[in-house]
């Protein structure tokens, strides 16, 4: 269903998927499968023209060598919105994409009409450290990010007990994705120490969406986002892990669409 485009942004090539109809919506994906078009995107596309760009270093998007930190990604997306001719848009960010979205909303509040943060990284709480993403094996990652261990993606990850079990193109894409995430999130680990103090600058009405059983980024992070963003609401999805868009697409889309429909 989505149309595939290549957009040039400040010397980088962006693979952009666009689908649906209605006002534009920007979806910022995680380090996982939601860089590709999924059921959740289809559902959002019933009311919005969903724009799903792949971050530099993911899918066919280039330019990861120009990304040395989170701020480079923030500017990249400000530039992308400019290239696409989009005014203030609703932004839905999942996990790693949620971190980018939070930063965008804090640093460029006028570009963001509404904000949804789904199991977003970006903050740090000493008492509840974010789980180990980079050093974990695929089975360990499956354990951490899925509540439903029978989900096809969880099963696929669990089957990868040795490199021989991993299809080469998948392995290649995963290595690239982790490298792109590491450029930004290795140390400080998946967070920006300055972000928490800057969330007061967010003006966009904000929904914080969290899977209760998120084993990578515990619910307490969702609560912290809600505390720090003026006027934010927190909606918890039951029996759901780190990626509601993948694990519970219907509930995810319903919560997001419901929130975006409010005036």
């Amino acid at each position: 269903m989505p149309e595939r485009r290549t957009v040039r942004v400040a010397g980088k090539e962006v693979r952009l998927l666009v689908g649906g109809g209605g006002p534009p919506l920007l979806y910022l994906h995680s380090v996982g499968a939601d860089a590709e078009w999924l059921e959740a995107h289809d559902r959002l596309a019933s009311r919005f023209t969903v724009h799903l760009p792949a971050h530099p270093g993911f899918a066919e998007s280039t330019g990861v060598d120009q990304v040395d930190g989170i701020f480079d990604l923030v500017l990249h997306y400000v530039d992308l919105l400019g290239v696409l001719g989009l005014g203030a848009v609703p932004v839905v960010g999942a996990s790693f994409g949620g971190w980018i979205a939070a930063e965008l909303a804090a640093l460029y509040p006028e570009r963001i009409a509404r904000l949804v943060l789904a199991d977003a990284v970006g903050l740090w709480i000493d008492e509840a450290p974010i789980g180990e993403l980079f050093g974990s094996t695929p089975p360990e990652v499956a354990q951490m990010i899925f509540h439903d261990q029978e989900h096809p993606l969880a099963q696929m990850l669990r089957a990868m007990t040795s490199i021989a079990d991993v299809p080469e193109d998948f392995a290649y894409a995963q290595l690239r994705a982790l490298e792109a995430a590491a450029k930004v999130g290795w140390n400080p680990y998946l967070h920006d120490p300055k972000l928490e103090g800057r969330l007061r600058r967010v003006t966009a009405p904000t929904l914080v969406l969290w899977g209760r059983e998120d084993g990578l980024v515990p619910l307490v992070y969702g609560e912290r986002y809600r505390e720090r963003i003026p006027g934010a609401r927190l909606h918890v999805i039951e029996r759901c892990g780190h990626l509601p868009a993948i694990e519970r697409p219907a509930e995810f889309a319903e919560a997001v669409l419901g929130f975006l429909a409010q005036t």
Binding site: F134, G135, I163, E168, A171, Y172, L175, R176, L178, E179, A181, A182, K183, W186
Partner: peptide, 17 residues
């Protein structure tokens, strides 16, 4: 153990192989 970005994906796959 080979952390992300430590080597190019092409080399990482070669070495894992």
């Amino acid at each position: 153990i080979s952390p992300p970005g430590y080597t190019s994906p092409r080399s990482a796959l070669k070495m894992l192989g």
